[in-house]
Nucleic acid binder design. Structure first.
Length: 473
RNA sequence: GCUCGUAUAGUGUAGUGGCCCAUCAUAAAGGACUCUCAUUCCUUUGACCCGGGUUCAAAUCCCGGUACGAGCACCA
């Protein structure tokens, strides 16, 4: 039995499931983020549940948030899903709630303030031995906690740890850190209302775990690199007496043509001028894909088809393109683009105009009229040898003489346009390294910027202010 | 090193013990349709990592090996 769409979810009977997509708002969303949005969003829709968009913006130094992303990301999510996220949660707005739970942890004696250095603690972790801070009384812990809050301690001096078990088989789980201090005077949080307000900040595993519970998240679908996070967080949930959400993982996806782009790598390349911006069509960002004419629905179908296996996979761009072609072909008007044009003077019985269909499968879309008031046409230099047939027009001999309007033999059919019904234009082909510019003549048209057309015998293309950007064949 | 995870055609994916000499998509090749190298349709090629075990029966369960990936951050 072939399963249609995404696999069935566990534990959805009789409930309205709650999903979340939680990016770090340190830049625009990338192709990879789209997976999280599509999968979580599709499940939410299917089960009439809720999709939370959560900004995990709790690091101000290593991965500082970018202010513009807070406005941009919800729009990107909406574009991709065709509907906005049901709820937006910003972690940096929720610091008091995290503090409250940190205090409960201290009071409940399943957390402690650790004043060991990171290196020192690594030693304890490797040796499976308790750090001396572990046995402090609740009062001492609360005292130290307050010294974190009031800045008596400085970043690096103290962290709050979750008491798990230092002899746990998996070293990653041993008394993991939940909150640490950040110098928000030197590195203020970019959101003006947060700025330097807080010195103590939760780490992802703590913030995410607490917030998932607070928001009633029922299903977490995320990368398998976060498997140990699940285990850490489950330990915390046990302390709090909560039930951990159903969790599903996916493996890493690489697109053969793109390799490994990261947000920070892209930022650097944009800043040094290698790319024009986040919307450069060569970049694997949502904006880049949009600029390249990739339809939201094609992207959704692409991710749904890949599913949620834990395999690390590498897919060719052709897979995405084939989904896109299915979406755009019926609507894409046909147009002639003549690369490296060669002018040919027609002789013989030249009509005033020639009519070509706008779309071969949709005659109701009408015709385009090519004027031959001057008997001059353009064909591609590559086609300019021997006899050929001008598509939808006439058989021509090597000198430009019209031999027959009817198709008389099997000579090659080529696309063409007339001198008077065409204008100079540029075809841009986004290769990995550079955008190749090819100058030529395009058939005159009134399509607006952003229209997706099919350049006959070349491929699908989106009209930009600079010319015709080739999307794919 | 320790821990965790994954292994089905070129690339993805279905398959949770007999319906599987293994599904679908994509890619490739061929063909039909078509005045596009497009769209649509048809056909072909092509896979259960290796070795043991359990069972009447294994892609599916168990053990070992191998390969690949991830975590072991006061990043997310």
């Amino acid at each position: 039995m072939k399963r249609e769409g995404l696999p069935e979810l566990k534990n959805v009977d009789g409930i309205k499931p709650v999903f979340r997509f939680a990016p770090n708002p340190n830049g625009p969303l990338s192709f990879g983020h789209a997976r999280g949005i599509v999968i979580n969003g599709t499940y939410a829709k299917k089960h009439e549940g809720t999709l939370i968009l959560r900004f995990d913006d709790t690091d101000t130094t290593v991965k500082p948030p970018s202010l513009s992303a807070y406005g941009l990301i919800p729009k990107e999510v909406e574009w991709l899903l065709g509907r906005p996220a049901d709820r937006i949660v910003i972690a940096s707005d929720r610091i008091p709630q995290y503090y409250e739970h940190a205090e409960k942890m201290l009071e409940g004696e399943f957390g402690y303030v650790c004043k060991c250095s990171a290196e020192a603690f690594r030693g304890f972790r490797e040796a499976k031995s308790n750090c001396p801070c572990r046995d402090k009384s609740v009062e001492e812990n609360i005292q130290d906690w307050n010294k974190m809050l009031d800045g008596t301690y400085k970043p690096g001096d103290a962290v709050v740890r979750v008491k798990t078990d230092m002899t746990l088989k998996n070293p990653a789980l041993r008394d993991w850190p939940a909150l640490r201090m950040q110098d928000t005077i030197t590195n203020p949080h970019p959101r003006p209302n947060i700025g330097s307000t807080y010195k103590v900040w939760p780490l992802l595993d703590f913030q995410s775990a607490v917030e998932d519970h607070l928001q009633g998240v029922t299903h977490i679908i995320r990368g398998k690199d976060l498997m140990d996070s699940t285990r850490k967080q489950t330990l915390l949930y046990e302390h709090f007496g909560w039930t951990y959400p159903e969790t599903i993982y996916w493996g890493r996806v690489k697109v053969h043509e793109w390799g490994g782009f990261s947000t920070s790598k892209m930022r650097a390349s944009i800043e040094n001028g290698e790319y024009s911006g986040w919307d450069d069509p060569r970049l694997p960002t949502i904006q880049g894909l949009q600029a390249r004419g990739i339809q939201a629905e094609a992207l959704r179908n692409f991710w749904i088809e890949l599913g949620v296996t834990q395999k690390d996979i590498s897919v060719p761009l052709a897979t995405l393109f084939s989904h896109n072609t299915k979406k755009i072909d019926d609507d894409a008007p046909r147009l002639s683009f003549i690369r490296n044009p060669v002018e040919v003077q027609l002789t013989g019985d030249v009509p005033d105009t020639v009519e070509l269909p706008i779309h071969p499968n949709h005659s109701e879309k009408g015709v385009r009229t090519i004027s031959l008031d001057t008997p001059s046409i353009y064909i591609e230099s590559e086609d300019a040898h021997g006899t050929y047939r001008l598509k939808e027009f006439a058989d021509i001999d090597a000198s430009g003489n019209i031999e027959s309007v009817e198709r008389s033999d099997k000579r090659p059919i080529i696309h063409w346009t007339s001198s008077s019904t065409s204008k100079d234009a540029t075809l841009m082909i986004p290769n990995q390294e550079e955008i190749q510019h090819i100058s030529g003549r395009v058939e005159s048209n009134n399509y607006s910027i952003g229209t997706i057309v099919q350049l006959e015998r070349i491929g699908y293309s989106i009209i930009t202010s600079d010319g015709y950007l080739l999307m794919h064949e």
